[in-house]
Design a protein around this nucleic acid. Structure first.
Length: 768
DNA sequence: AGCACGCCGACT
DNA sequence: GTCGGCGTGCTC
């Protein structure tokens, strides 16, 4: 500590008002602070301290060494105490000026700490990637001994003068490990380690491979859209487009050719896809249409990530296809960004910074002065508003489906299986009335008719909440409450089973408690199980394939199951939302959606939108190939007008109705929301903090921007996070930056009461 | 985050 | 009197 003090003395101003000159680094420290800090750059580190470099510096009274990232370096003067950066590692990939600007924007817009933005952009693991090493085997000066065995002689002759990699020598079959080791011991061979260059330029081949898709002539609407995008690419200015078209209208083809236009001008493109796209062949099929592609996603190993990023940064890649993180791809000459299925929730980050990749893409396009295309059949209402009423984006519409694909006929059935039933009949096999099962009479009839014609059907059950049951593999019985015999529900968060009827609660058992059974317990969705059972009763001969997140562990599971169904391995595919997205199904003649209005029972202002999107997606699945098909949408209650529009597959009608609702109740896109969650294990702390925070925020809002409103604090649903109590405060303000200004005043100046965990989510999507 | 300061009640 | 709990504030 005294050494640090002494060093500080040297940097203190000798006299009042005197200035010092030198290199200054702006540093984002990995601390929960909303500020960046300035440090001096010692001459010997001047090379390493670049934007994106990881640095350490003494910080705080104790002079403790803390880690952080360099954001910017400047030559400057200072008139205050300054400490020096202690150590620095240059960035694994260079952080370009536009990306630094984007990082600053993300920090300000999403109100997270600069350290959090930088560790998302350049995760620590990237710096830990060591270059690959390979071992080279070379002949020594020693001559081949007279008495060398045939095998040894052959090995020595097989090793060329310039050496060969150990791996290829092994592969060639010329030698075993023992033989090589022996030769090394005798001094006949030498093995040296060499660093492999991180990547190799595999290209020169800028020509994209032609595929059969390239032969297709575009429809009139596709051609018009493509022309607009090509012009924008040539214009080299910021433009935003919404490419709006029903499933099957050929959006992908427009993206591909717009990206080609960018490549033809020597530019790179980023194509963002939702997470679910990685589970299907969509990405592979897309990637095959370009010569130099990199795929980026969250589950990559640090090494392959660095390699891909390095190739992108060097301009050896023309197209980056990836999930939300790919919006930060270090492209050196970016010319176009495409966000496919922009309404998808997976573009919203689940951890700080809680950014939305679509919105970051728009900002990046603005910074880089390039066009950005959002594509969707059911745009997020925010996007639709921007493309129509607000006039911020240009709307490009692909009206009809490409020839040969027709929309299915859609019918609404209102049927509530639980109506009039007591709760304890819920799990029992009560099927007395015609409409008492999960399947309405109408859906049941249609299903049987479909099966009779030997056609395939899909049934989608919109599982409500997270209720999950446990069932014994051996005896097949579900776990029941020992006190009241109703079904027990598994709570993943704390591994307990709870009875929602009598509040009995216990640790989740590992084995079946039934006397003399002790079988393994299987987890499964309650709703899907009920549906499966009912199908067995209604159509005992039908081959049923179940697809939900409980049965599908990996991407491969998902793909093989879908392929099997496509090849006719089952008659009925049942599952959750999972099956609404992704792959094209071949000839499916009947689609049934059960509990299509389930989201409406959650308290979330986007509920109608989610329900609409689900219905549109799943109904769209049915009619992709020529021929008659039917969609039956089952709801519990008479739907609101906006949802009725889903039956007609009429997005505009939905948008008009829903926008009116959003405006009336002051919800996005008419306001900007920010959600603060105060979490604390100590009793009353979270509630207390939320109440005091709401007061403080209200005072700040009154001073800064009276248009910003602070909702009264609310307790959050089931405390899942390590049994912490959670309370939220919701801010709503004008679409401009009012909300962020109030938040910044509160956070930067630390005006909010301390809790164990505070999360700040601007434009929240999740309210649980 | 970590560390210091300052304010309170409980004790050798 | 002083030790230690906890709440608050600051770090270039």
């Amino acid at each position: 500590v005294s050494a640090v003090r002494r060093e500080r003395q040297e940097w203190l101003l000798p006299r009042e008002g005197e200035l010092r000159r030198g290199l200054l680094a702006e540093v984002a420290l990995e601390l929960p602070t909303w500020k960046t800090y300035a440090f001096g750059v010692p001459a010997e580190l001047a090379e390493s301290v670049r934007p994106g470099a990881r640095v350490t510096a003494p910080h705080g009274r104790s002079g403790r060494e803390v880690e952080g990232y360099c954001l910017a370096v400047s030559e400057g003067e200072w008139d205050q105490t300054l400490t020096l950066i202690q150590s620095a590692t240059p960035p694994a990939v260079e952080l370009s000026a536009p990306l630094v600007e984007l990082a600053r924007w993300v920090g300000q817009y999403y109100q997270c700490t600069p350290g959090a933005v930088m560790s998302m952009l350049l995760p620590r693991t990237l710096g830990e990637v060591r270059p690959k090493r390979e071992r080279i085997v070379r002949r020594t000066e020693a001559p081949i001994p007279e008495k060398a065995s045939d095998r040894l002689r052959r090995l020595l002759e097989a090793v060329p003068r310039e050496g060969v990699t150990l791996a290829s020598l092994r592969e060639s079959g010329a030698a075993t490990d023992t033989l090589i080791r022996g030769a090394v011991r005798k001094g006949l061979l030498a093995v040296v380690q060499r660093e492999v260059a991180l990547t190799t330029d595999d290209s020169g081949r800028a020509e994209a491979p032609m595929s059969e898709e390239d032969g297709y002539a575009l429809t009139e609407a596709q051609a018009v859209a493509l022309q607009a995008l090509s012009d924008a690419v040539a214009g080299e200015a910021f433009r935003a487009f919404l490419l709006f078209g029903v499933p099957g209208s050929g959006k992908t083809e427009v993206y591909v050719r717009a990206i080609r236009a960018a490549i033809a001008r020597g530019r790179q493109a980023i194509l963002l896809v939702p997470e679910i796209a990685l589970a299907t062949q969509v990405v592979e099929r897309l990637a095959r249409r370009f010569a130099r592609v990199a795929v980026l996603h969250g589950q990559m190993s640090p090494r392959s990530r660095v390699e891909a990023l390095a190739r992108i940064a060097r301009g050896e890649v023309d197209v980056v296809i990836g999930t939300r993180t790919a919006v930060y791809a270090p492209c050196c000459r970016l010319g176009l960004i495409v966000v496919d299925e922009e309404q998808e929730g997976s573009f919203k980050s689940l951890s700080s910074p809680y950014y939305h990749a679509r919105d970051v893409a728009l900002k990046r396009a603005q910074i880089e002065r390039i066009p950005v295309v959002l594509g969707s059949a059911t745009p997020a209402l925010e996007t639709w508003y921007n493309a129509t009423l607000a006039g911020r984006y240009q709307l490009l519409e692909l009206g009809t489906r490409v020839p040969g694909a027709e929309l299915p006929r859609a019918e609404l059935v209102v049927s509530d299986p639980d109506e009039g039933l007591s709760e304890d009949a819920y799990g029992a096999s009560a099927d007395s009335d015609a409409n008492r099962g999960i399947l309405s009479t109408r859906l049941r009839t249609a299903l049987l008719a479909t099966l009779k014609r030997r056609d395939q059907a899909i049934l989608l059950h919109n599982r409500r909440g997270y209720a999950v049951a446990l069932r014994c593999d051996t005896c097949g019985l579900p776990l029941r409450c020992p006190k009241c015999m109703s079904l027990l529900v598994l709570h993943h968060s704390d591994e307990t089973v709870r009875c929602h009827r009598c509040s009995h609660r216990d640790r989740a058992p590992q084995r079946c408690p039934v006397e003399g059974c002790g079988g393994a317990l299987q987890r499964g969705g309650l709703a899907i199980q009920r549906l499966e059972e009912e199908l067995r009763r209604v159509a005992p001969d039908a081959r049923v394939l179940r697809l939900d997140s409980d049965t599908m562990r990996t991407r491969e599971d998902y793909q093989t199951s879908l392929r099997a169904f496509a090849e006719g391995a089952a008659d009925v595919l049942i599952g959750t939302q999972m099956i609404a997205k992704g792959l094209d199904f071949p000839v499916v003649r009947l689609v049934g959606v059960i509990d299509a209005d389930a989201p409406l029972y959650l308290r979330d202002f986007r509920a109608t939108e989610f329900a609409f999107q689900l219905i549109m997606q799943v109904v769209g699945r049915a009619g992709r190939k020529a021929g008659e098909s039917l969609a039956i949408v089952q709801m519990r209650r008479e739907p609101p007008p906006a949802l009725k529009a889903a039956l007609a597959m009429d997005y505009r009608q939905f948008a008009d109705a829903e926008l009116a609702v959003r405006q009336r109740y002051a919800y996005p896109p008419f306001v900007r929301l920010a959600r603060l969650v105060f979490a604390d294990a100590r009793p009353d702390r979270a509630a207390d903090a939320a109440r005091r925070a709401a007061e403080t925020l209200r005072e700040l809002a009154a001073a800064i921007n009276p248009a910003v409103r602070v909702d009264p604090p609310e307790a959050c649903a089931a405390p899942r996070l390590r049994e912490m109590n959670r309370h939220q405060v919701l801010l709503r303000g004008p679409r401009e930056t009012g909300v962020q200004k109030v938040l910044a005043a509160a956070l930067t100046e630390r005006k909010l009461p301390a809790v164990q965990r505070l999360t700040v989510d601007v434009d929240p999507m999740d309210f649980s």
